[in-house]
Design a binder for these strands. Structure first.
Lengths: 228, 228
DNA sequence: TAGATATTTCCATTATTATCGAAGTATGAA
DNA sequence: TTCATACTTCGATAATAATGGAAATATCTA
């Protein structure tokens, strides 16, 4: 922890039962939307906003905005461990579990996030590209390595052309279903468009959900070294 | 820690400034009377009662009653270390210090506690007897060992006679100045009466204070293996 | 564009909590 | 027995904080 949070303040934050519940939920290490936290803690969205603001000001949690959503998570591992200390001596809370509708489930496996791949597939792809040495994390975006340029060329993606475009090249994008980062920006968009063009995936009508085609089931694991 | 205190509850305790002060005072490891804690925290006795009750219920502190006094202290070393951790990074508190009057000072060095020795001398005597293997702590009282029976006989104290008396034989007695235990009960009384009879100590008029005589300064260190 | 969803702001209400005066109980001292 | 001391209980008050209704803003969807 770089900042020395005031323990009395932290204690005051934790001492509220509703906030304790929310913290407990976020201690799974993932990010959760405001409405999800509200529902699980059994309060109205306005009240959730009230508490989330407090906790953000107290530097206990941080927020990542994603369009009209906001995802909240524990600020850093240091804060988490302090909170764990409190939790380690505390009993469990009853937390309402989210009912996952079938529609929701489909969205989780693969979908578009604006104009790039998200969901389980989006996250898997990015981590596969990191493992292959194609991408390197750098703050809030990804950089392409020299070997990466070659690899992307085999997918008919020209880095230099993409970089000319008037948009972010490859920002990290927090995934609401996986709670991990996938890749947005021009590069994310290019990869999405290409594998769509190759017929490896297709859009499902009236939703952001994506289906992997038979062709895709054949090629994607080979090219990216992942299991689907 | 054997009992599982509730996290939100513990946090709620710490988040109050007055309680933090009181905890801070008790973290010296000693027991403090309710009025002492009230004065040092800058609140009225009623308010202190209110907080002390809360902390006792939260299993953070425990209490030992001593006549009309009550002495409060951190429940156990485990709780103490958790509290230390949280308070160590919190800002310091201004705590009123107790003014010690000369009369008060005299009482601290040696005095009677009802009918037995208390104060520095009382505490020293008991720990010396423990070290010599005369006494063994057992819950809230002391037991006399076989060697102890012999030793006490040299002081003309007959254990078997004492045990016949209709009073507690040797309960532990919390000392308000030393905040450690000395010995009450029939045994504590017998020891007191004997060394008074030997002229090793004498009562000061109109107070509970005790003075060690020249004779006592000669014999007590020798017999009990202590420094005065 | 209109409609749906996610979150926020504003505001009034309710709940919780710390505080202390006044009066009561318990204990020790004279 | 009478008085003083240590602590507690009760009740009123004031400060603080949590809650959600109503309406606004922002973003995505159709």
């Amino acid at each position: 922890m770089d900042v020395n949070p005031n323990m009395a303040l932290v204690a005051a934050i934790i001492s509220d039962k509703t906030r304790s519940k929310m913290i407990f939920i976020m201690l799974d290490g993932r990010f959760h939307s405001a409405s999800e936290l509200a529902y699980m803690a059994g309060i109205k969205p306005q009240t959730a906003t009230f508490h989330l603001k407090k906790m953000t000001e107290a530097q206990i949690i941080k927020v990542e905005k994603q369009g009209r959503h906001k995802y909240f998570g524990i600020k850093d591992p240091g804060v988490a461990s302090v909170l764990e200390t409190f939790l380690s001596i505390a009993p469990q809370f009853e937390v309402r579990s989210l009912k996952k509708s079938p529609r929701d489930k489909a969205l989780r496996s693969a979908r578009t996030c604006y104009d790039h791949l998200a969901g389980n597939l989006g996250v898997k792809l990015v981590s596969a590209l990191e493992k292959k040495g194609v991408l390197v994390k750098e703050n809030d975006k990804y950089e392409v390595t020299n070997e990466g340029i070659e690899f992307l060329a085999t997918l008919q993606i020209n880095i230099y052309e993409l970089k000319k475009k008037r948009r972010s090249f490859s920002h990290k994008c927090l995934d609401w279903s996986e709670r991990k980062h996938h890749m947005g920006g021009a590069l994310g968009n290019a990869i999405f468009e290409k594998i769509l063009e190759f017929g490896w995936i297709k859009r499902l009508p009236n939703t952001r959900a994506i289906k992997i085609t038979t062709l895709g089931e054949e090629h994607i694991p080979k090219i990216f070294n992942i299991d689907l």
